[in-house]
Design a protein around this nucleic acid. Structure first.
Lengths: 137, 137
DNA sequence: TTCACTGTGTTTAGAGTATATATACACCAT
DNA sequence: ATGGTGTATATATACTCTAAACACAGTGAA
């Protein structure tokens, strides 16, 4: 065990100023990396300590994030060894994100309707925002 | 002051089991009522105690919700008198909901893209969910 | 007109839960 | 045996919620 983590560092934006708790931001970031295929099945994730150092948070904050990712089936942990991406990490990550996207959409549509928007106006807003997302992609 | 509140009770669904804190659920519910025009400008809202009794929560939980609604400009409070809908409550409520709908949409689209969905698939999902919302409306 | 009562908002104190940090212990490979 | 790993425990702070007491404003009766 001379390897100190994955070949590249995990690029996860984490900010105490953001609304979500730190551990949630880490969860979201790792999900994104897995979903995008940047973390391969069975790939070794950084240790608690390594990631905590990199992100300037405490070890337990990272542990909390890893715990939940394990609970959701995206990663698995082995004491003394390290933490790894599940073989079906990509599929699972995308499944969870799909579910989340739908949940957010339902809420967005409901909120828009409550704001007095009609069907056409909502579709138009979606279309505009979609173009923006595509550019950013 | 013989009137004990508005002519009709506030129908706000509030559940401790829901994810959002109780005060947030109350905020959302009152916003919805104002936005839908069911609470007129300068209308008297139920007192802390009356709404707390009705919703089976504590007085302070209602106070917390009313405080934030006042901060956001939807209602105003007068000690010894009661709490009222702001003259521009409807406009303000819709403005805030519009902003929230957009925020949720942006996040939903981003999450969908991260789940591997393309533009067409996203639009299709929006269309389907839109039809469902309309039925429920 | 004054005062007491009622209903209102407002303040204070306390308990439980959630989030985050620091430190020490147990496991595994080399 | 050592180094790197996950795991457990203790602590502090912030958030959420409840209960009780205090101050304000209007109304009705004397």
């Amino acid at each position: 065990m001379t390897d100190t983590g994955p070949r590249h560092k995990l690029l996860i934006p984490v900010s105490p100023g953001a609304e979500a708790p730190l551990y949630q931001q880490i969860i979201d970031g790792i999900k994104r990396e897995i979903s995008a295929g940047r973390l391969a099945p069975d790939a070794l994730l950084p240790s608690f300590r390594a990631l905590a150092e990199q992100l300037l948070v405490s070890v337990i904050t990272v542990k909390r994030a890893y715990e939940e990712l394990e609970r959701e089936g995206l990663i698995y942990r082995k004491q003394g060894l390290g933490t790894f991406v599940s073989p079906n990490g990509v599929g699972r990550s995308r499944q969870l994100k799909m579910r989340e996207a739908k949940r957010l959409l339902v809420e967005a549509l409901r909120t828009g309707i409550e704001a007095g928007l009609g069907t056409d106006e909502l579709m138009e807003m979606v279309g505009e925002l979609m173009e923006r997302q595509e550019v950013k992609r």
